[in-house]
């Protein structure tokens, strides 16, 4: 099974960044029903870099705060524990993989991921889904597997790119599976499992390319795939595939978005990207 191959590849990576203790502790706290906001605040405040990143993210357009939030404790109460945990995970991944080895367009990659996160967030709010706060990070980290390829398997990725460019209708996940034994979704899921990311995030990362892992997260995966296509169609950032990925009727319906809502989603996505230039500059300070 190709997920097993993905796990094998990840296990073989020698210099994989380790999840910082503070992030591990935040995850443990969030899972404990007796945790208070004070507990989370005390922990987050011990990490200045994480605290600063969290405040910048809270004050970016993605979280739509009516006024500037300057107190970390207030930010934590407003965001909620699950979102705080997800921001900590995202901040870790950004720091670890903002730039890296090989001649790949990291900035273009992260721009596409941020645009997908924005579109996910907008769709989740429009559709009033449960756990709205999770969708931003689902979108942001959905292509974690691409980062694994760029950072740790640059020759394999170069061969995948070359084959993908030979014709306009190449099925990129199939090229990945032929080259690596797994697709980038499975690779990302294997890494997310290794870092003990929440199960829902692992499932979304693993299933956004194919539907095999989407058992309990069909709607989340559908929204991420649809949001990814919004980012592709608006040409924000870069992508391995020239063709816009085809998404069938059943996936759009599972997401719950109608065709006539797509224009509005695009307008809001562009507005969020415009307002979040400061956040994007943060990535490349």
């Amino acid at each position: 099974m190709s997920l097993e191959k993905a796990r094998e590849l990840v296990e073989g990576i020698e210099d994989l960044p380790t999840l910082p203790e503070v992030v591990i502790e935040i995850t443990r706290l969030v899972e404990n029903p007796d945790t208070t906001a004070e507990d989370v605040y005390r922990l987050v405040s011990t990490d200045l870099s994480l605290s600063a990143t969290m405040l910048k993210l809270v004050n970016s357009a993605f979280y739509g705060m009516p006024k500037s939030v300057t107190s970390l404790e207030k930010a934590i109460r407003i965001l909620g524990f699950a979102t705080v945990r997800n921001i900590a995970l995202a901040a870790f991944v950004f720091d670890a993989f903002m730039t890296g080895k090989g001649k790949f367009d990291y900035r273009g990659f992260w721009l596409h991921s941020i645009a997908t996160a924005a579109a996910c967030d907008i769709m989740a709010k429009r559709l009033r889904v449960k756990d709205i706060g999770e969708y931003f990070v689902y979108g942001l980290l959905h292509d974690l597997g691409m980062v694994v390829l760029m950072q740790y398997f640059p020759d394999g990725l170069t061969r995948i790119r070359e084959q993908s460019m030979q014709a306009a209708d190449v099925d990129v996940p199939k090229v990945e599976e032929k080259e690596m034994g797994c697709n980038h979704g499975e690779l990302g899921a294997a890494l997310a499992e290794r870092w003990e990311f929440p199960a829902s995030l692992v499932s979304v990362i693993g299933s956004h390319v194919s539907d095999e892992m989407a058992e309990g997260n069909k709607r989340e995966v559908a929204i991420v795939r649809c949001a990814g296509n919004v980012a592709h169609a608006l040409e924000i950032g870069s992508s391995l595939s020239f063709l816009i990925p085809y998404i069938g009727e059943e996936v759009w319906q599972a997401a719950g978005i109608s065709p006539d809502q797509l224009g509005g989603v695009m307008d809001e996505t562009l507005r969020e990207m415009e307002h979040s230039k400061a956040f994007i500059d943060l990535l490349y300070r």
Binding site: C226, H232, A233, I244, Y246, I247, G248, E249, W252, L262
Partner: peptide
């Protein structure tokens, strides 16, 4: 060129139309 063969349902058609406008 990027949507070739993809506009097989109302959503993919709308994605193309609306993206072109933006």
């Amino acid at each position: 060129a990027r949507f070739e063969g993809r506009e097989r349902n109302a959503w993919m058609k709308a994605l193309h139309e609306e993206a072109a406008k933006r």
